[in-house]
């Protein structure tokens, strides 16, 4: 009675399980890999487009990155032995990585077409890559398991529908789209409790995630007055209002303190 299913029947059975378990916002489907999670490029008014650039910094003594205990999965222990928590990554100069910066308000009734190019969220070395990312409503998100271990992809949505899908085999891919904006939408792997990712789902393309140098750039904005918000998973949010004319570039700085 007890038998191990072959890979093909496993995938088929797993597909049925996905159909049962994932009632996610938008849709979830299997698709071929394509491209990478590129920064937004679309702009409503390309002529005389403006930019908001800046840097996010941390003031005070930055916390030490806590090591993660990986012993519950031998694969993770071998694949990424020095893994530390990504909750606060502060460079020596005070720059903060993984801050999601976006236009919160000021775009009015403008509408934007979602890019067809998928954003990729990879599970590699028992961590999500990238840790923080943005995506537009309707834009496909391709979720990949690059690890030779099991992951479950648990999108803990509030505005969209929650979903939880297993990826037990290395190389498995799934595509998911979101039906409404949500900042931020947490992703979690319940198998590996330290694995978290944050996804900003917006109905426009004006967002960015700070890199190791803490800088960001919102390109191609129409002239106007905007509320810019910077979000960090543990440090909270900060907002600033900027007014930019056609063709201008404004610099905005955000400074977080230890909470």
């Amino acid at each position: 009675m007890i038998r191990r299913l072959d890979v093909r029947s496993l995938v088929a059975a797993f597909g049925a399980a996905v159909a049962l378990t994932s009632c996610g916002g938008g849709t979830t489907q299997t698709s071929a890999p394509a491209g990478s999670g590129a920064a937004p490029t679309a702009a409503a008014d390309s002529a005389g487009a403006s930019n908001v650039t800046g840097k996010v910094t941390f003031t005070g003594t930055p916390p030490k990155a806590a090591p993660i205990k990986l012993s519950s999965d031998p694969f993770c222990q071998n694949a990424n032995p020095g893994l530390t928590a990504e909750t606060e990554i502060v460079a020596p100069g005070g720059a903060i990585q993984n801050v999601f910066v976006y236009v919160k308000d000021g775009l009015g009734n403008r509408t934007f077409t979602a890019p067809a190019e998928p954003v990729v969220l990879d599970q590699k070395g028992c961590q999500y890559t990238p840790h923080v990312l943005g995506i537009q409503v309707g834009q496909p998100m391709q979720i990949v398991n690059s690890d030779d271990t099991l992951h479950n992809v648990h999108g803990m949505a509030k505005a969209n529908k929650e979903f939880n899908t297993g990826q037990p085999i290395q190389g498995m891919k799934m595509t998911h789209t979101f039906s409404t904006k949500e900042v931020m939408l947490p992703f979690k792997c319940d198998v590996h409790g330290w694995m978290h990712a944050w996804v900003g789902v917006l109905d426009h393309p004006y967002y960015a995630v700070t890199g190791p140098d803490g800088t960001f750039s919102l390109k191609g904005l129409p002239a106007g007055t905007y509320t810019i918000e910077a979000w960090h998973e543990t440090l909270g949010t900060q907002t600033q209002t900027v007014t930019i004319g056609a063709g201008e570039t404004r610099d905005v700085a955000f400074a977080f303190k230890a909470s």
């Binding site: 038998r3 299913l5 088929a12 049962l20 378990t21 031998p74 694969f75 099991l150 297993g166 198998v191």
Partner: peptide, 29 residues
């Protein structure tokens, strides 16, 4: 916090429950 580490039910990642390999019982699984 392992309640959702196996997303399907009554199967386990597509396996019949009692056929799920012990070697794959990692982390919250």
């Amino acid at each position: 916090g392992s309640g959702l580490s196996v997303p399907d039910w009554p199967s386990t990642y597509g396996w019949f429950m009692w056929a799920f390999p012990v070697s794959k019982m990692v982390g919250g699984i």
